[in-house]
Amino acid sequence: MDHSKNYITPKGIEKLKAEYHELLNVERPKVVEVVAWAASNGDRSENADYQYGKRRLRQIDGRLHFLQKRIEAAEVIDPKSLKSDKVIFGATVTIENEDGDVYTYQIVGEDELDIKQNKISWKSPVARALLGKKLDDEVKIQKPAGDEMVVITDIVFE
């Protein structure tokens, strides 16, 4: 996989676009309004509303710029359209460790990472260890506490 690409699922790109839209069309205009009102009150050097508003505008503009670049670089891949006997981007993989503990992860884009929902970035150490492997393969995952051997028990695309 090309590490400069921004691989992302359809849900992930929609989330980025929704955040961009919210910031640009809802939050930014509100902050501009507050800054304009605060500026009209005179001395800006001691005006907390004005100073906070300007800082918040810089944060919003920075985030908008970041989101725009991520959206432009996005290569949308729909897991439902994939078929493979190997672990690839978008796969939901179930693994079992030597203690019999079972974990299921979906391999997603960097912008979709959500540990609570078991979504891991395709660039993460766990995903990199699993990518390209097949059902019943033994895989060594390098962890800070030491290497862990796991077996792939299921690969699905949903």
Rank of each mutant, 00 (worst) to 15 (best):
M1N: 08
M1R: 10
K5V: 13
K5W: 01
N6S: 12
Y7C: 06
T9H: 13
P10Q: 13
E14D: 11
E14K: 15
L16R: 07
K17E: 08
Y20R: 05
Y20N: 08
Y20E: 14
H21W: 08
L23V: 03
L23T: 04
L24C: 05
V26H: 11
R28A: 09
K30Q: 11
E33I: 08
V34T: 14
A36V: 06
W37M: 07
A39C: 05
S40C: 07
D43F: 10
S45P: 11
A48D: 14
D49I: 06
Y50I: 04
Y52P: 07
R58W: 12
R58I: 12
R58T: 10
Q59V: 14
D61P: 06
H65A: 15
H65D: 12
E72G: 03
A73V: 12
A74F: 09
E75P: 14
V76T: 04
V76Y: 10
D78Y: 11
P79C: 07
P79D: 02
P79T: 08
L82C: 10
F89I: 09
F89H: 04
A91M: 03
A91T: 01
N97C: 08
E98D: 13
G100H: 14
D101F: 14
Y103A: 06
Y103V: 11
Y105W: 02
Q106D: 13
E110S: 06
E112W: 01
E112T: 06
L113W: 04
I115R: 15
I115S: 14
K116C: 05
Q117N: 13
W122K: 09
W122N: 04
S124I: 10
A129Q: 13
L130A: 03
L131G: 02
L131Q: 09
G132K: 03
K134G: 00
L135T: 01
E138R: 02
Q142C: 13
K143Q: 00
G146Q: 03
D147E: 06
D147R: 06
F157I: 12
